[in-house]
Design a protein around this nucleic acid. Structure first.
Lengths: 214, 214
DNA sequence: CAAAGGCTTAACCTTTTGGTCGAATTCCAA
DNA sequence: TTGGAATTCGACCAAAAGGTTAAGCCTTTG
């Protein structure tokens, strides 16, 4: 794979290096998503990028390190968009709508990331317990506070905020993690944009109504 | 769920043999759930049962066969209880309530089965596409018809039945598949019965209200 | 233009693991 | 008791996969 000449390259080595690393990470995310950590042969990733195994190991010294980097990328991308608090809007309805729509968007745009994450959690989250504790949970707690505030202000029904988030997380991520099953049920080779839109509308409607947000 | 013996069985299996096979299957379900197909070493299963690897292979000739049997067991157990149509009750509210509660029960009693299934779907369901097509989907279609009927009778809101099932499946199975994450959030070493009860009540309330079932 | 340093490859090594084979042992009914 | 079937075990094997090493190639830069 020859890289395009870049006239304004000031540090070509570092530039091409990051490019190579990115393509490796992308391929790795894909393969790890489908086969899980153990099911993935680093050779399969190398083939996909068009590198030899040894050469790929030059960029990432081990399978474990590569996997960690993939996981890291996924999590960072996620956490950014995953706060209810940070949604646009000044009222429960708008914010919740944006939140749900955002989560479905992630399932649509980054299904592989979601699958890697799912694999990790199912197998007991050995590698990211700490990450979850220090990053996800604090953010969630803030979101929970917001929900409680809305409840106390009578802007929604008094429901358990934690289980509400479990519901939203699972029902949105299922369009990534379980896409195979959904495609089978809907009899489509691949989910299309309209399917995700439909899912969004459905979930938004049901959850808003179900929680009494108006 | 007829336990009819295979016609091609010349002799019924001995009591001790079936007992051994059962304990192997149980251990296998456990290990496959945690590590996935590729991540599981048959030695780990054998150790757990207290057999040598070779001896275990005497009962199940290969890892693949053993895995298939585990999957088979899980699916059969599931399908039995998974029809909305077969729930007790003569009205939408009761039937839907029992359905959701039943699904949460499965997550509580058979979390490993759920995880094995989840692993399989995430990795593209290579081994059970056919099973889903011939077993799950027909049952689902019948359930979808029932929902449509309820809608046409004005007993619930006009919503998309398919996405409703996706929501119920995902939000109930998450208490098995993602239990690690949930335990972390709820700050408990292990989910207790009351947690599942709470989840049931939450989901039942939200889904009934959200779909306009009364 | 030539040294330095980044990049790539061939050959090789080690460990793990699914699986085989035949001998030994146990179980069971005649 | 005994012969045959069922079960268990020790020894071994081949393939796959992660990883190492040392040597060569290519690009940049002083």
């Amino acid at each position: 794979m020859t890289k395009a000449l870049d006239p304004k390259n000031k540090k070509p080595k570092s530039r091409s290096r990051t490019a190579t690393e990115s393509s490796i990470l992308a391929a790795a995310e894909d393969v790890f998503a489908r086969f899980g950590y153990h099911g993935t042969a680093i050779n399969a990733i190398a083939d996909k990028v068009g590198l030899s195994k040894q050469n790929m190991l030059y960029y990432f010294p081990s399978k474990e390190v590569l996997y960690q980097r993939v996981l890291e990328n996924v999590l960072n991308q996620w956490l950014e968009k995953m706060a209810l608090l940070e949604q646009e809007g000044d009222n429960p309805k708008t914010m919740m709508t944006n939140y749900i729509r955002g989560k479905i968007d992630i399932s649509r745009v980054h299904p592989n990331g979601s699958k890697v994450f799912a694999n990790e959690i199912i197998s007991g989250a050995p590698r990211l317990r700490d990450y979850l504790k220090t990053n996800l949970i604090p953010q969630l707690e803030a979101d929970v506070q917001l929900i409680k505030q809305w409840i106390s202000e009578g802007r929604m029904d008094p429901i358990d905020p934690y289980h509400l988030f479990f519901l939203i997380w699972s029902s949105t991520q299922t369009y990534a993690d379980f896409s195979t099953q959904i495609e089978l049920v809907l009899d489509k080779p691949k989910l299309e944009e309209q399917d995700y839109d439909k899912a969004s509308e459905f979930l938004i409607h049901l959850i808003l109504k179900g929680t009494g947000i108006h």
